[in-house]
């Protein structure tokens, strides 16, 4: 299971403030801490700071620079604005990179898809179009078809695509957990080379004891075929469950990773 560290996100209050006040040290530390905790990718969402939209690109470039100096882990460029994504890709020096995200809207697929093809970036694709999050598995699969057809026509390879089946809080609609899981299963059978990814903590929004809900859902999703999760790598309990998920789904030969984590003393019950 690939872990995409979610902490550097401008919509988080303390990160938003750090970006606004140009607190480089805070942001560099947060990047390094996530990498040290085992994040495979570090997500970078610069928002628009507290200024106008024109500054979004400049803020992203500034932030990319800080994060890549703090860690050599690959970055996930988190923006839906093509200009910002393009600027970030130029600024970024690493080879492996992810773009987060695109959806099934043709105009956005066209522009962001081209950027992904050029830079051979992995691309998170949300299974929805203009009308918001579809409530059924079928509608989400229809979105996957639009996305894959368009992206492959631009030269993006199937294995570059990370489909996000979308997670709606279970507190709002109790049927939605299963719908996300079934969508993951279906995507994996339709596009075996493509990957799946979820923003994990959405599932528990509005509930008490969110951690245990997140962890249980991670295991269920792993069984359904989940390849990656956007989560908080500084949460030792959820990171332990990532190890357990790999262990139980045949992704940890001879249980090496799990036992190594035990020896390092990083497993948290």
């Amino acid at each position: 299971m690939l872990v995409i560290g979610e902490r550097i996100n401008a919509s988080n209050k303390s990160v938003g403030q750090a970006i606004a006040s140009k607190d480089e040290e805070f942001l560099a530390k947060l990047a390094k801490a996530q990498a040290d905790a085992g994040a495979d990718f570090v997500d970078v969402n610069a928002g628009v700071g507290f200024d106008a939209r024109e500054n979004a690109t400049a803020t992203m470039e500034w932030l990319i620079d800080i994060v890549q100096r703090a860690t050599d882990r690959p970055l996930a460029i988190d923006s839906d604005d093509p200009d910002t994504v393009q600027a970030a890709l130029r600024k970024y020096r690493g080879d492996t990179v992810m773009i987060n995200s695109v959806n099934a809207e043709p105009e956005r697929l066209e522009v962001i898809g081209r950027l992904a093809a050029e830079s051979q970036a992995s691309l998170v694709a949300l299974l929805m179009g203009k009308g918001g999050i579809p409530s059924t598995v079928e509608e989400r699969l229809a979105a996957s078809e639009v996305i894959m057809t368009h992206l492959t026509s631009l030269g993006v390879k199937e294995e570059q695509v990370f489909f996000d089946p979308l997670v709606i809080p279970i507190s709002v609609d109790s049927t939605q957990g299963i719908i996300t899981l079934k969508t993951i299963e279906q995507i994996k059978s339709r596009y075996p080379a493509a990957k799946t990814v979820v923003g994990l903590s959405n599932i528990s929004f509005g509930l008490p004891n969110r951690g245990m809900v997140n962890r249980a859902f991670l295991l269920m999703a792993a069984y359904a075929g989940l390849d990656a999760a956007i989560l908080d790598p500084l949460d030792a309990k959820v990171m332990s469950l990532v190890k357990v998920a790999d262990l139980l789904t045949g992704k940890d030969a001879a249980c090496r990773g799990f036992i190594r984590a035990h020896r390092k003393g990083i497993l948290a019950d």
Binding site: P169, S171, V172, S174, F205, G206, L207, P208
Partner: peptide, 10 residues
């Protein structure tokens, strides 16, 4: 006061 959660409220 966090006695109730979103599903309760809904």
């Amino acid at each position: 006061t966090k006695e109730y959660f979103i599903p309760d409220m809904l």
